[in-house]
């Protein structure tokens, strides 16, 4: 017999099982390491209430996928295999070629692999939203309530510092006045 629960408990349950939307900035991040973290959020493994059969995964919106950073020589030597099913129908596409065709595809495939081989993978991938740049549709932007921490800090370029910051940066020694740098 289903017993009614109090209003407070009911709302608490909605809050516990409600889906959250996370934002992840993929700029200068390793897509294969990021994919494992994203897959964890898609499955709901970041929550203490996690159970593989209770549907507690969250949404993840990934921006700036065009700026992902593959380690070492992966752009050139990572191959994506496809077979059409016909004789001689095999093809290998390198990561840089795939990235030129679709700027979200490398990360999509990395997350697809990181989600594991279970039947839940399809639903998990439905909760992943990839965008090549930082332009997100307004209806998605309204849902986002939190962001995931980047795995690596994005270093600041020299031209992004102000004149004052560069001037006040601590120096070990001063160049002599008659020294020509370039």
């Amino acid at each position: 017999m289903n017993r009614p629960i109090s209003t407070y408990k009911r709302v608490q349950q909605w809050a516990v099982f409600g889906r959250l939307w996370f934002l992840f900035d993929a700029k200068w991040q390793n897509p294969f390491d990021s994919a494992e973290k994203i897959a964890k959020y898609l499955a709901g493994k970041h929550k203490p209430i996690y159970h593989p059969l209770s549907d507690v995964g969250d949404h993840v919106v990934v921006i700036n996928t065009k700026d992902i950073a593959l380690p070492n020589k992966e752009w050139r030597y990572r191959m994506y295999y496809h077979h059409t099913g016909f004789a001689g129908g095999s093809s290998w596409t390198s990561a840089w070629e795939l990235h030129n065709k679709d700027q979200t595809k490398v990360l999509w495939k990395a997350v697809y692999k990181a989600c594991g081989g279970s039947l839940l993978r399809h639903n998990m991938m439905e909760r992943l939203h990839l965008f090549p740049d930082d332009k997100i549709p307004q209806e998605l932007m309204e849902n986002i309530s939190d962001h995931m921490k980047q795995l690596r800090p994005v270093p600041k370029a020299l031209h992004e510092y102000t004149e004052e910051e560069i001037k006040n940066f601590p120096k070990v020694f001063e160049w002599p006045e008659d020294y020509v740098l370039n």
Partner: peptide, 13 residues
Amino acid sequence: NLWKERITAACEE
């Protein structure tokens, strides 16, 4: 393993 995963999730928070 499930308890470990749950405690790990709570620890990460």
